[in-house]
Write a protein that binds this DNA or RNA. Structure first.
Length: 185
DNA sequence: GTCCAGTAAG
DNA sequence: CTTACAGGAC
């Protein structure tokens, strides 16, 4: 939840501090709201600590302190949407769940689509299908992580590094136009 | 001003 | 469908 719309580099130190202070759902459930909100600062989007606190309490009250892994239950928590539910399934539980975050959406769009409006609801739905279609049977954790890393490190928003990208040969956006001033052609 | 491991509400 | 939400980096 810290990673929702927040850069990884900014999350890591706060995440370390957070899990040191609230190592379990029970510990977080017991904490005072003021303490929870203060510990979150200055990550922003302050509905997130409030919702995470509520999730911890519900996990303790209704699920014996263990987060369920099924999508329906995960999505039933306020603050867990399509991406976070899939990320928890894939990264926390090792389940075969496709993911679409800002990185994956950009990579799949550029590689397989290339044109049309990137923000339309129809396209977003389609990208989830593409993500599911390219997902291998095994090594799902590594595959999803690699897809995100490709978007975060190579196929970045502003200056994609196409010269080192393994997808350039089949990429629908390659070669990139001048609007994507590539760093290395 | 845009973008960032989104989500809920209008 | 669009917008609010935090805050920091480029």
């Amino acid at each position: 939840m810290m990673l929702q719309q927040t850069q990884v580099d900014r999350v890591i130190p706060k995440y370390e501090e957070w899990v040191r202070k609230f190592p379990t759902f029970r510990a977080l459930a017991k904490a005072r709201p003021a303490d929870v909100n203060r510990t979150w600062r200055p990550l922003g989007y302050n509905a997130r600590p409030r919702r995470l606190h509520a999730i911890a309490r519900e996990v303790v009250d209704r699920y014996d302190g263990a987060l369920p892994s099924d999508e329906v239950t995960l999505r039933s928590f306020a603050g867990i949407g399509a991406y976070t539910a899939a990320a928890v399934q894939s990264f926390a539980f090792g389940l075969r769940a496709p993911i679409v975050d800002t990185n994956v959406a950009r990579v799949l769009f550029r590689v397989f689509i290339g044109q049309s409006d990137r923000s339309s609801t129809t396209l977003q739905k389609h990208l989830w299908k593409v993500s599911a279609a390219v997902l291998p049977r095994r090594h799902v954790f590594d595959f999803n992580q690699a897809l995100m890393d490709l978007g975060a490190l190579v196929c970045v928003a502003r200056k994609p590094q196409c010269s080192v990208c393994p997808m350039s040969a089949i990429c629908q956006t390659y070669p990139p136009g001048p609007e994507l001033k590539t760093r290395t052609q």
